[in-house]
Amino acid sequence: MNIHQISVFLENRTGQLAEITALLAKEHVDIRALSIAETADYGLARMIVDDSYKASSILLQHGDILSMTPVYAVQVPDRPGGLTELLQILAEVHVDVEYMYSLFTHDTDNAYMVMRVSDEAKFLGALGDRQIKVMTKDELGLK
């Protein structure tokens, strides 16, 4: 059920992110979701790409520091309050969101949130009970 997220270490230096996205573009890797977390001196880019194996080999070869993390892409109705419903469910079962960001698709009715949570079993259980859809790699067109 989970999908692979690639995290890349970013030094605080002009053009570092552009360098990374250019490398991926050159090899036709499509970035489907991206989020940046930063401190004053460095940051990290978390991303979902269409081919995580290919992307990680490219970046490793470039000398980047990476980590691969399993995360979940959750379907959320694309209307006001859609996200709140999901977050309230998680709060009820005491699951913390460590981080989340949105994922691009061409679906006009739903939005998709990439999530990393404190307790995966509880998280999946609660979502299953409410019939909230957790997307598979195939459904998102990821390799």
Binding site: S7, L44, I65
Partner: peptide
Amino acid sequence: MNPEMFSDSLAKI
């Protein structure tokens, strides 16, 4: 930075 010390979590780093 090296692979052993890197993580997807900024808090850990």
